[in-house]
């Protein structure tokens, strides 16, 4: 029996692509909007939904706590004016994200940051 496998590519270059390449960034922006649209209304429900979309399982309490904390940190920095919500959520500081009713550009930006982390999880990349 033979099993042909491609050479593994978890190098820093692959990491930079997952974090910063435009299509990956757009995927994070789109995932944020989807989570705001269909992931319920609480942070916990949205995190559980986003996590399941990426890894096909629910997060543990420990994992959820890491993401809640990241979300809170970024929300605060957006609210304090350090970050440009439109730019993060659309790539363009003049453009508004296509957000679900009830959500704000600030939500879209904070969730884009969370979504970008989720899309770069080892478990997401290798579909564990």
């Amino acid at each position: 029996m033979a099993c042909a496998r491609r050479i593994r590519s978890n190098t820093p270059l692959a990491a930079l692509t997952g974090l910063n390449e435009p299509v990956f960034v757009e995927a994070a922006q789109a995932l944020a909007l989807r989570v705001l649209r269909e992931g319920g209304t609480s942070d916990q429900a949205r995190i559980d939904h986003a996590f399941r979309l990426c890894t096909s399982r629910s997060p543990t309490d420990e994992e959820r706590a890491v993401l809640i904390r990241l979300l809170a940190l970024q929300r605060q920095r957006i609210a304090d004016g350090w970050l440009n919500a439109r730019q993060i959520s659309t790539g363009d500081s003049e453009k508004l994200p296509a957000i679900a009713p009830g959500a704000t550009p600030q939500d879209a930006a904070a969730w884009t940051i969370v979504a970008r982390v989720l899309l770069n999880l080892d478990e997401t990349i290798i579909k564990g």
Binding site: N20, V66, Q87, I113, R116
Partner: peptide, 28 residues
């Protein structure tokens, strides 16, 4: 390639995002 952060992402966001990512991967 892709050495620059995406639009709007400053160094602190990048660092905090990578910290969260590392914590989650560390759990796994």
């Amino acid at each position: 390639l892709y050495l620059s952060n995406p639009p709007g992402i400053d160094n602190q966001v990048q660092r905090e995002s990578l910290d969260a990512l590392a914590q989650l991967n560390q759990i796994a």
